[in-house]
Amino acid sequence: MNAHRRLVLKGMFALAAIAAWPRLLLAARPDSVFQETDADKVIADLFGQAPTDSDQVMMKIPDIAENGAVVPVTIKTDLENVESISIVVVNNPTPLAASFIMSPRSVPTVSVRIKMGESSQVVALVKAGGAVYSTTKEVKVTIGGCGG
């Protein structure tokens, strides 16, 4: 059994067992998902379920990056029982940028800075109460323009 299939199974197992052991999922770094090159597969492998678009997931990220090498992202949510917060950059060579595992004492808000090779959709994913919620935003990485 390869690592990828193990992860899916683990995800499904965790899904079934979520009420009892909410922190089992992502208990270790999902190394193979960090190598995965397709964003849809990243999300499938990470959660074993499709996310629901939700305005309860709030993402602050620039519309146009000042520097593609340093793009600040803040994700927060009003959802309860948050288990993890993840960031997927669809057009990056390996789309999964980061996963943050919340503790029972966590306030579900994190900030980090990411690299973007080109303009891309950026997806913020929050796993809470066993379900996965997301919000998506286009971030433009552009050459310098001209000023008014």
């Binding site: 999964l96 940028a97 980061a98 990411i114 690299k115």
Partner: peptide, 13 residues
């Protein structure tokens, strides 16, 4: 107690 765990890939700045 662990209050936060982060797993990062190569795209963190």
């Amino acid at each position: 107690e662990v209050v936060m765990t982060a797993y990062w890939g190569t795209a963190v700045s």
